[in-house]
Structures are given as C-alpha cells and as structure tokens.
Amino acid sequence: MQEPAPDNDRNECLKKAESCLERAGQDIARRTYWIGQAAEWIRRARSTETEASSKSRDMTHEISGGRLIPKSTAK
C-alpha cells in the first residue's frame, strides 16, 4: 500500500479546519470550541508541512476572523 503524500495529508488537515470553521458559524453556542478545533487542524497541517519538501512548506494558513486565510509567501 502506498503512503499518502505529505501534500495530501496537509490538504486533508486544511479541509477539516475549514469544516470546523463552517461549524463555528452554524453552532454559535460552541463557536469557541470549533475555532479551537480548526486551530488544531491547522497546527497539524503545519506539522505535515515541516515533513514535506520546501516547496510545500512555503504555503501556510492561519485563522483570521473565523476564516481560513492563506498566508503570503513573500518575505
């Protein structure tokens, strides 16, 4: 069986983070919980990035205003 590529793992983590943010918008009573869950999935995505090639490491995301935002790669 083939190992999943780090980019695929990263993308899955980011999809789960986005899903948590959508739930945060729908479940106002537990909004803080869902944003925390999204932050954890983003942390996992970043962890996957460190294991990936430098090309994929350049792309990171953050939560801003309850949304998943790609960070600029310009330095």
Rank of each mutant, 00 (worst) to 15 (best):
Q37E: 15
S53T: 15
S64L: 03
G66A: 04
A29I: 14
P4G: 02
R67C: 04
K16P: 02
R30D: 10
R10V: 05
K75G: 10
C20G: 00
W41R: 12
S56M: 03
Q2N: 03
Q37T: 15
A45V: 03
R23M: 08
A24C: 12
W34K: 02
R31C: 15
I69C: 12
A5F: 00
A39M: 05
C20E: 07
I28G: 13
Q26T: 07
R30L: 12
H61T: 06
D9M: 03
P4F: 00
I35V: 15
S19P: 01
S56V: 05
S56H: 02
I63F: 01
P70I: 06
R23W: 11
A39P: 04
D9C: 04
E12N: 06
L21A: 09
S72N: 14
R43S: 13
T60L: 03
S47Y: 01
E40M: 06
R31Y: 12
T32Q: 15
L14Y: 14
S64N: 02
L14K: 08
R10P: 07
R44C: 13
S47L: 05
S19M: 12
S47T: 10
R57A: 09
R23V: 08
T50D: 12
T48D: 03
A17E: 04
T50Q: 11
S54C: 10
D7F: 01
M1W: 00
C13V: 00
I35L: 11
A52R: 08
A45T: 01
K16Q: 12
E12L: 05
G25T: 08
E49C: 14
L21S: 06
L21V: 09
R23P: 05
D7L: 10
K71D: 15
M1T: 08
D27Q: 13
R10S: 03
P4E: 01
L21C: 08
P70V: 05
A39W: 02
S54K: 13
M59S: 07
E40A: 14
S72K: 12
E18L: 10
I35P: 09
T60S: 05
I28L: 15
K71S: 12
